[in-house]
């Protein structure tokens, strides 16, 4: 699946997007955030306060309890500051 990062999440991880294949036991967004943190210190830094990270599945906001199965694009980003 394609994972995209925005704002300081993007800066800390050091890339705007990547294609990853999480292991089968990664079922929810919370699982995904936990798994990403194991990929390296840059991920750990970006996701250290995982509860504040906002996530969208295929362009729609989703709770951390949401299942990721079937999503083509998952985006991780900080709370929004537009307007």
């Amino acid at each position: 699946m394609k994972i995209r990062y925005f704002a300081w999440v993007r800066e800390r991880i050091g890339k705007a997007e990547e294609t990853l294949l999480p292991p089968a036991e990664v079922a929810t967004i919370a699982d995904l955030l936990g798994w990403l943190k194991t990929l390296g210190p840059e991920y750990e830094w970006a996701l250290e306060k995982a509860e504040f990270i906002r996530v969208a599945l295929d362009h729609v906001h989703a709770d951390h309890a949401a299942a990721i199965a079937g999503a083509d694009e998952i985006a991780l980003f900080p709370p929004m500051t537009g307007g």
Binding site: F6, A7, W8, F77, P78, P79, M80, T81, G82
Partner: peptide, 25 residues
């Protein structure tokens, strides 16, 4: 709703043109 749900993020640019901090929600 736009302020809290539309995916936009503001970064400050200082007087010297240097990129500063991301604006906190």
């Amino acid at each position: 709703f736009l302020k809290t749900r539309a995916p936009f993020w503001k970064k400050e640019v200082g007087l010297d043109g240097a990129k500063g901090d991301w604006v906190d929600a």
